[in-house]
């Protein structure tokens, strides 16, 4: 995208959860939640990460944040590798990478006042932060559209949208380079969702923060992202600029996802490819291409060889044997 190194660079990231054998020796094996994904995000850019539940998108976010330890792969933040850092060094790096979770209710400690919630990250790095904490908190409240008189309230006195603003203020407090938004607007009502989406876009314009925007909602992802990656069973199957991915989706799974999304137009009930069946279990994944069991155009080759992501022109990467280019 640009000459400067990407803000966040993820290389072959994997996360495997071992399943413990039961007492009678049943079970065992492993869940390959994330299976070698790679992507990079530039300053001021938003990368959307879409997929259905269980595709590993949230685990990927948590592994990047080291809330769960990645099994393999590298995570580079601003040109520095962070996946192997010890707890103390990682704590310092956390200033540059923040997170916004889905549920604004449980993301806030119900016993703390709003001002203390937003001040917490500032106090954690008080020595490294110039200026008074009080002024910074007031400024953050202003930036996310909360009133100063709300500072002494407790989380339950806020509405869902206001709570998510508090979460965003906390994430912004340390002026991070990247914010990982894990289903950040999925729990909100439509009208409030629009407020928060606009807020995120405005903050990005103002601060140049990069977003990894994890969501299952295709329309929201299209609205907020510059580039979009589609995940299926732990792997990225397609990654491209937004216009290309939504305009000419190349992977059969992306095509099916887009076609399945309900369109708010009673006359727009189009012919759609409705996928048969459901996502296979990440414990027993199909051989070769994981999508082949549901793919409308699977061929014999798909069962044998795992397709790799390759450029099909214009920075559009697809992992499918059947796509030419």
């Amino acid at each position: 995208m640009s000459q400067t190194p990407p803000v966040l660079d993820v290389r072959d990231l994997s996360k495997t959860f071992a399943i413990r054998r039961s007492f009678f020796g049943r079970g065992g094996g492993a869940v390959h939640a994330v299976d070698g994904i790679s992507f990079a995000i530039a300053e001021g850019e938003t990368l959307g990460l879409v997929g259905e539940s269980g595709c590993g998108k949230s685990t990927a976010g948590r592994a990047i944040l080291r809330l769960t330890e990645p099994t393999a792969g590298e995570v580079w933040l601003d040109g520095e590798r962070i996946d192997g850092l010890g707890a103390g060094e990682m704590r310092l790096k956390r200033r540059d990478i923040q997170v916004v979770f889905q549920d604004p209710y449980s993301s806030l400690n119900p016993r703390l006042r709003a001002r203390d919630i937003v001040a917490e990250p500032l106090r954690n790095f008080a020595s490294a932060i110039p200026g008074g904490i009080e002024e910074r908190v007031a400024d953050l409240f202003d930036r996310v559209g909360l009133r100063p008189d709300q500072m002494d309230r407790f989380p339950h006195e806020f509405s869902g949208g206001q709570r998510q603003r508090l979460v965003i203020a906390r994430a912004l407090a340390l002026k991070p380079r990247v914010i990982i938004c894990d289903e950040a607007v999925s729990a909100l009502d439509v009208s409030v969702q629009a407020q928060v989406i606009n807020l995120l876009a405005r903050l990005q314009r103002e601060t140049g923060v990069a977003f990894l925007f994890i969501s299952h909602d295709l329309a929201v992802v299209e609205h907020v992202s510059h580039r979009v990656a589609v995940m299926y069973l732990g792997r990225i199957v397609e990654i491209a600029d937004k216009a290309a991915l939504y305009g000419q989706p190349r992977h059969p799974y992306t095509q099916a996802l887009l076609s399945a999304a309900p369109v708010p137009d009673p006359d727009g009930r189009r012919d759609r490819t409705i996928l048969k069946g459901e996502v296979p279990s990440p414990i027993n994944r199909p051989s070769g291409c994981h999508f082949r069991t549901r793919c409308p155009s699977a061929a014999a080759e798909c069962a044998k060889v795992s397709p790799v992501l390759r450029d099909v022109g214009g920075n559009h990467h697809v992992a499918c044997h059947l796509v030419e280019g």
Partner: peptide
């Protein structure tokens, strides 16, 4: 306002810069 505040799939077309918000609660 509800209909306007929904992000919509554009199939690669031009999306509005900002979504319509409903202010307040």
């Amino acid at each position: 306002a509800l209909l306007d505040s929904m992000p919509r799939l554009t199939e690669g077309g031009e999306a509005p810069e900002e979504l319509t918000e409903i202010p307040g609660v």
